[in-house]
Design a protein around this nucleic acid. Sequence first.
DNA 1: AACGCGGGGAA
DNA 2: TTCCCAGCGTT
Length: 344
Amino acid sequence: MEKNFRNSDFLHVGNKLLAWYKENARDLPFRKTKDPYKIWICEIVFQQTRINQGLNHYNNFIKRFPDVKTLAEAEENEVLLYWKGLGYYSRAINIHKAAQQIMTGHNGAFPAQYEDILQLKGIGKYTAAAVSSICFGGKMPAVDGNFYRVLSRVFADDFDVSNSRAFTYFSELAALIMPDNVGDFNQAMMDLGSEICKPKNPLCDECPLEDDCLAFSLDKVSDFPVKTKKVKTEDLHLKYYFVHHNGQFVVQQRKDDFIWKKLFEFPVSIPEEMEEFIKGLKTVHHKLTHKNLTIDIYNVEVTSDTVWNDFIIKNEYLITDFNGSQDKSFPKPLETYIQNSLKD
DNA sequence: AACGCGGGGAA
DNA sequence: TTCCCAGCGTT
């Protein structure tokens, strides 16, 4: 793009956006508060997550963990239970650690300064800017996917949003139109990007920035944003054994690497002498963003107390039953498998 | 600077 | 199918 295009005053664009937001802001639960704890939680929940998908999780989470102290004192596994089904489970692990950071490092009071907020686990430049601007009058733009899309269209800017310098680049672009009320501006950009300036089929005739949008005037809205990085998926084959005995079954907890960090799963192998108890196999297909999973689940009904006890003791496995499984967080496909087994 | 990490909805 | 979503931590 021509650099001289950016040398004029674009503040009126931001002011139009604010006026639009005043009339068209979405009615969301976390819009009624400036409690930094609640804003923080909502920012984490809705990272890479659509509002409708995470709304129930957010409400349940706030109800169970209403403040920093309650969250900090909870068990990690219970925090993960409330994150069940949301994905990106390191968010739950980090949110719990950050609560403890706030207790020990800030006497339980959420830090007000951008630099201090940025030090918390799981909080990056986007979230620090969002919380500080919405709750404490901070002046940093909360640059996210909506900013990339709206700004690249308004300025018809072909800067590649998959470039690692995109955050800095679009932060500078945002500063051109950013009014004094940065908290509302940040939220307005989110609502405009979500409701009007959508990735596909944007509602340009309803957009308050239609007269200011260079891409629209060039009839090239669909050319922006430019994104070169392509989504690549790979196939992955997993195998589990659903080992059960007298209504109980064997579970173990995953490590905090790879997928489904610290969630519970079935054992991935059984001793040879147990193979005679295999009743059948169910293959489950599950799609992740970057993986197509094929999961073979062997149904192993152990009818020998000796074999069962040896297996548990030798491997130090955890045992649960169908009721107890509700207190644990399982990966989606395994959760579905357990629920279906309950019906049989 | 590049990559891995979930799950669901829209087109 | 493919893309995208109130991104972040690790390497």
